[in-house]
Amino acid sequence: MTTKHERYYVPAQSYWPIVGAVGLFFIAIGLANLIHVFQPGYDTSLTKSILLLGVGVSVIIFMVSGWFNHVIKENMAGLYSAQMDRSFRQGMIWFIFSEVMFFAAFFGALFYIRMFALPWLGGEGSKPLTLDLLWPNFVAEWPLLNNPDPKYASPNEVIPWHGIPLLNTTLLLTSGATITWAHWALKVGKRLQLNLAMFCTIALGLTFLGFQIYEYSHAYMDLGLTLDSGIYGSTFFMLTGFHGLHVTLGSIMLIVILVRCLRGSFTAENHFAFEATAWYWHFVDVVWLGLFIFVYIL
């Protein structure tokens, strides 16, 4: 076919979506079973759960790589119009919006706990009876190092903000600067600097993850700060954990982009994938900034 596709490209039938749905199905039942393995009172088989989960994850990996490959091939074949390009961009932006709302819920939970729930539990304002009737010895403070009920073992110490957290903040900020450097280098066509800056960004991101893992083990081993050590640990690990997950995702995306940079796939005019990934990295960095301020410092 020699005619250029001005019309919107409606793909033919595709088996990737149904594969993806099956993958999600296996992940969901595998995960639910796996969780039950570690709960008292269930006789769920560990092997079977891991098998189910493994099948699900493999199917999803197969689906994602296959689907992306398909899309890249279609793109190379010139099937996509400028309008199609806009669909992808807008789709991605609305996906980001949903991510923002997901983090907003956890931040909202943190603010609610700190500003309302804990002070009320401590008898503030019109709630003296709450204090007297529930846990009279409770003192509302943040970070919470004395849980109301001994059912939850309290953490011994707060994570100091000026140690690893500050280091990690610096690492991520620097990676924000290096990816901006890469971005600039791409725009002005300096390939060597682009690759170098991308490499630095990935290295910084991975170092961040390494320190984060170290900090978690420090919290578990030395500080007694765990997921089940009351609300301080719960909010801390949920917020930083989901952020860490996004750093991991971002790093994988950056590695893919670096490979494509090395192959010379991007030009000063055509580099949407680069810019989108770069933006995503900035987004992850800003979420960290919010965490640093609201979880570690204030």
Partner: peptide, 25 residues
């Protein structure tokens, strides 16, 4: 993000906003 969506690829406005954000950070 807005410029990423709206501006043509040759535009530098995305880059510039992100530079501003790194500066502020």
């Amino acid at each position: 993000l807005y410029f990423l969506m709206k501006e043509p690829a040759s535009s530098k406005r995305t880059l510039r906003s992100l530079m501003v954000r790194v500066g502020f950070t």
